[in-house]
């Protein structure tokens, strides 16, 4: 292995941080969802890197499962965005605060 594991993990953390920042900072729900996808991928990268480091298939399997769940999450998240938009015609998550206590 020519590249140190720490590099991969650091890269993964950076992507995760960027994704988290996107979720927190952006108000467009679509961009937020994409940022979440970024975070998923950061996690996947860590899984794959660790799997490679420990020569264990389990990390691959987990990454595969993560992709599946991410797909499901994206589908549902987008559906929610669609109906919220259809109802109220805005795409700013801060305006969707019906659950405010």
């Amino acid at each position: 292995m020519s590249v140190a594991l720490a590099n991969y993990i650091a890269l993964s953390a950076v992507i995760f941080m960027i994704g988290a920042a996107g979720v927190v900072l952006r108000r467009n729900p679509l961009v937020m969802l994409m940022a979440i996808e970024l975070m998923w991928n950061a996690a996947n990268l860590a899984f794959v890197a660790y799997a490679r480091a420990s020569m264990n298939n389990a990390g691959h399997i987990f990454a595969f499962l993560v992709i599946t769940v991410a797909a499901a999450e994206a589908a549902i998240g987008l559906a929610i965005v669609v109906i919220v938009f259809r109802r109220a015609e805005f795409v700013d998550v801060d305006e969707v605060s019906v659950l405010k206590g």
Binding site: V3, R52, H60, F64, A71
Partner: peptide, 15 residues
């Protein structure tokens, strides 16, 4: 590069 060929393909196709 990390020898996860199946995941690489999945990444392209699914994502």
């Amino acid at each position: 590069t990390l020898s996860a060929e199946f995941l690489a393909v999945i990444q392209i196709i699914v994502y």
